[in-house]
């Protein structure tokens, strides 16, 4: 029962990521895209939840192009893996279903 969540809002201004994390479980993947990548910052208001869920088996990704565009490559939580566009496609295909949070 694998599930991919995509999130495109910054957790500094919206609770979109928080709402997503509230129902995340082991084997789920979370892909941060667009302004959602700010959620991967070390200063992210969701950092603690991301680290806890990561330890429980939730996988976190941030879309590389969106991260680079915003100049935040060097400041990300270690549990978040950069994903290429091809990785994005693979994640969608590999998971049973995708829930997009926007």
């Amino acid at each position: 029962m694998s599930l991919l969540h995509t999130v495109n809002k910054s957790p500094f201004s919206k609770d979109t990521l928080l709402n997503c994390l509230a129902i995340c479980q082991a084997k789920h993947s979370v892909l941060l895209i667009e302004d959602g990548v700010y959620g991967a910052l070390k200063s992210s208001p969701c950092r603690e939840q991301i680290e806890q869920l990561s330890a429980m088996g939730v996988r976190f990704f941030a879309l590389s192009a969106d991260v680079s565009a915003r100049g935040i490559d060097e400041n990300l939580i270690a549990d978040v893996t950069l994903a290429s566009d091809q990785d994005f496609v693979n994640l969608v295909v590999k998971n049973n279903v995708t829930q997009s949070w926007y």
Binding site: M1, S2, L3, A22, I23, C24, Q25, H28, N96, V97, T98, Q99, S100, W101, Y102
Partner: peptide, 17 residues
């Protein structure tokens, strides 16, 4: 609850948000 929502989502053929 959160677990039931995760289960509901996971059992779908498609999700429209």
């Amino acid at each position: 609850g959160a677990d039931e929502i995760a289960a509901l989502m996971g059992s779908q053929g498609a999700i429209l948000s």
